[in-house]
Design a protein around this nucleic acid. Sequence first.
DNA 1: AAAAAAT
Length: 741
Amino acid sequence: MPKNLRSGAPKKARWTPDQKAAAKKGPKKAHRGQSSTASGGATYAARPARDGDRRPERTERSDRPARSYDRSERPARTNERSERPARSYDRTERSDRPARSYDRSERPARSYDRDDRAPRRFDRDDNRGPRRDFNRDDRPQRRDSTRDDRPARRYDRDENRGPRQYNREDRPVTSTNRDDRPARSFNRDERPARSFNRDDNRGPRREFDRSDRPARSFNRDDRPARSFNRDDRPARSFNRDDRPARSFNRDDRPARGFDNQVDPEAERMEADTWVKATRKSVEGPVTVDADNGFAGLGLTERLVERLARDGITTPFPIQSATIPDALAGKDVLGRGQTGSGKTLAFGLPMLSRLADGDKAAPRRPRALVLVPTRELAMQVSDALEPLVHVLGLRHKLVAGGLSYTTQINALNRGVDVLIATPGRLKDLIEREAVQLRDIQIAVLDEADHMADMGFMPEVTAILDQMPEGGQRMLFSATLDKGVDKLVEGYLTDPVTHSTDDAKASVTTMEHHVLLIDPMHKKTITAEVANREGRTVVFVRTKLGADRVALQLREQGVFAAALHGGLNQGARNRVLGAFRDGSLPVLVATDVAARGIHVDDVSVVLQVDPPADHKDYLHRSGRTARAGDKGTVVTLALPHQRRTMERMAREAGIDAMPTKAVPGDERLAATGAVTPSGIPVPEDKVRRVLEGPKRGGGRPSGGPRGGGPRGPRQGGGNRSYRDDRSGGSRGDRGSYSRAARD
DNA sequence: AAAAAAT
């Protein structure tokens, strides 16, 4: 019997010794005499028979014909099910009941069979064989054999017992078949007694069920209602709201829809960016001024000009340091946090070098940029887009959550620069959609993250596919063991350039570590997050992100979660809403800790402390970008104080933990405002985060539309990336600031 | 723990 996962304690505990005794003396027992638990009997006693109970029918076994007749008339199959105990009874091997559900799960068609059961019942009593034949249309061999095959069947049952329960719980497919499955399997597990009861005392068991589990009996009788309930389930409905396509996906495994479902919108947004960038690149003539800092670095003139068109004329330190060496084809080890301008630091020389060579052969890209998250990949792709284009090169973003087709097609046409996350790239390599033997330049961005245990095997597998002697550039915030290994294994005489020291060097950033009582965490989180401007709230887990976002909304702070458990479309929408200002608070896992660029994040609030000082710096790097001011607030529970002190030391920040309570002036000093307490209406959340309308809406969706794109679309595709062109910062283009990361 | 591929 599986452990009772949900309730924590076995239901058995509820039975008094008297009840147990009663159970043992139960009527059914009398003729069965082998109930393995007392539960059925006990519950039986507890509940009087109802009109709806099948008992009477059952009792009347003798008039089987009549019965089968009744059965056929019975609309709900469920009822029949409950009668099954009789069946198990026939089978000497009761113990195998679980096996039965196992079979079920294996036979999707089963639900259909169910409707057919009425006849089956009939058969059952008299002639087992026939009945069975009827039900199992799909098993020819069985059909002809009647009694002979019975043993075999039992055998199966026994064997499958364990598996079956397992399947029930875990298999999405199951739920797909039956609307009520999830609830059901749940219940099953909770009621150990049930399977036992089944055999012996059908009636009792049933009563037990009914009285004990109102919801269930309700659902059973009334299936439609149940499916309805399904929609109400929080986690689920959340997803649903996000993804118009979801109902469509429903047939798929939930996990899949949730995780890596290819989102058409994500695809379209990708295409959209491309169009926009292309349009921008053909605006009026530009002159490269004499004081253009990029002019003297040796880059192809077209690139310098293209940058100037977007007002980018002064290289960041890491750029001026790295570019000459990178242009010379040397291996480069760049140390610097995101925000220091890494994308252009490797992107410009890479493209400049590629500009001269032959075009890429089909499926054989010439350069590879490997990044740890999809968002980062998109950001890099966007940043390089205009530059790639101006050189007449081609690039492609290859990452999970996007369709294989476009990626494979692009690769077939030939791609010069591949921007990829490791998983999908490896997948495509295995599918022979791409090979890396022509890679001349490889870049590892956020290498310290890529060197994580989880990433490392894939990363090295990919690196091993590339020819030796190619140029490798590796950018990392730190040089710890993992990165060291990459450097030793894959870089040759690297030139190291570092702008900062993996320490907090940004002087415009303020750090606060607040020592708080656990009971105040929710309130304080809401206070700190509730302020003018954008706030990024970091939490440790995906579940935590959802939870904190919900709690914030309940307290009147408009927030939404961003994490890897969302499908790509939802990720894009959330990030887009945050970037365009319609969503003030982003609650994220570390998926957003690195590289993600959003302007004007005034506060980074770490509800859960980061894992280490590197993460601290990466997370805090979401604020105070490019000279802006920013505040980093970290909440620490008492037991986290020492860790936080150490981390602050390692990160080079000056912030001793100080106690804080809700309404603290210390919080107010950072701009915190006590939230209204009026929950943010869910439809507002939906409105802001919803995808393109389906059914009756514009064919290709809302404002991000797929229609002809004219200048009026200047603001364009906000949910895909930062696009503030035309704003106060001038028309610096899509890679204005993001590119400097 | 999260992220990164799905089947």
